[in-house]
Write a protein that binds this DNA or RNA. Sequence first.
RNA 1: GGCCCGGUGGUCAAGCGGCUAAGACACCGCCCUUUCACGGCGGUAACACGGGUUCGAUUCCCGUCCGGGUCACCA
Length: 491
Amino acid sequence: MEHKKVRTRFAPSPTGFMHVGNLRTALYEYLIARSAGGEFVLRIEDTDQERKIDGAVDIIYKTLRAAGLRHDEGPDIGGDYGPYVQSERKNMYLPYAQELVQKGQAYYCFCSKERLDSLRENADEPGAGYDRHCRDLPQEEVERLLEQGASYVIRQKMPLTGSTTFEDAVYGTITVDNSELQDQILIKADGFPTYNFANVIDDHTMNITTVVRGSEYLSSTPKYNLLYEAFGWDIPTYVHLPLIMGKNDDGSISKLSKRHGATSFEDLTAAGFLPEAIINYIALLGWAPKDNQEIFSLQELEQVFDISGISKSPSVFDYDKLEWFNAEYIKAMTDEAFAQAAAPYFDKALGEQSFDRVKIASILRQRTVRLTEIPEKVAFFAALPAYGCELFVNKKSKTTLENAGAMLKAAIEAMEALPGWDFDSIHDGLIALAQELGVKNGTLMWPVRIALSGQTVTPGGAVEIAEILGREESLRRLRLGLEKLQHPAES
RNA sequence: GGCCCGGUGGUCAAGCGGCUAAGACACCGCCCUUUCACGGCGGUAACACGGGUUCGAUUCCCGUCCGGGUCACCA
């Protein structure tokens, strides 16, 4: 038994965004390679010249980097099996196709696009396909047309009878009747290979041992096998992944796509999700560990990932669960790290004003689910919002329009007299005051917090907010609140 | 429509012939509490259906139903 080093590849086409399904495929490919001490290769599949998009390849690099999926070989870093961009390999494919023609496993087809279209239109049943018109053209006819420079494609000659069987590491043994297989195009009229053909040639020449892809390829896999067999090449290990679905408005589900909301890595990070949380979540979409662990770093996944844990049934992408992961990751951050991750959002809400952002981060961290919620949560630090006196009334804290004023008045006096302006001083001062007044803490704290923030729900309590606002601004806001209570009409 | 693949709570899922059928998210209560959260405790909720095989089926087989995928000079 020879022991080949496991090599997987991520082979995206540059479409301009990274769909989460693609990202998960990349992740599993990465993990399968890493968990086996193997290699992970990046290959760009740009054989469709009509769909080229500028800058799309950079998005792929950026996403992989942000996700922490380092490739061992690729267009940007080279390797022993280059080039790693299919358009740069263009000349490699035709000779292989011609070899197949020699072997009688493929043939030239001169049918026009129009003919194929009308074939499809006139078909009784959907999925009728090509009628194999050129499959048995006489040799002389083929040569004559080639000499004339006629436009042609090369098609794979499928067996008309029998069946093809292959093994999939996830789905097991799958058999398909050969009569189901179309004589698929290998080389297009523009000279470029089709995706399917380029895939086989590249995977073989790049020594890929394990082909990982979405289960939408399950039914075309027999065609791949026939190709490998025709060349006499080793067939790779297939790992087909269950699809990621999205829930439609009517409650039905279908392959996750744009209409389901944020579905690309870029969309998700823009929506305030952390890359680590996204990776952790999608790792568990279609795969489960042996135990019940849910929070995994990429390094941990590299240790425990195993193909046997991949499930066969499709899974629905659940934003609620993703949010939970995101919140977990945020809670696990240090205040400093969180302040840094939140920086753009702080900038947006606080502008130039100099608050202690690490302190704000510390009260925000436990209650932030998505980074995008931050601006609205901290805006009151920058500017006291307009608010009405009714906010001072809270049943649970036993505050009323009547006692709130007295509380504020007492609080102002106590806070003015405070020797220092740090958490402990403010806290101890106010708690002592509440005791002195003979009221429960909430009765004092509620109106103070309302006056400081102008809103009923805030990150942090009265003490934290006061500390961050500073003595001067805090007292200003408290006096404003007191005035409001004393002259409700004017406010 | 043909072919292929699936079907455990609303969602993600463990289970791989014998269990009171885990766990997580969401949801609902209660507790904690200077708001909201966090946290703690508890709760509602599932083997699609019908036949077999077996002493015994969520688990194995067949059928039905349901869902998804695929049938391009797209990947």
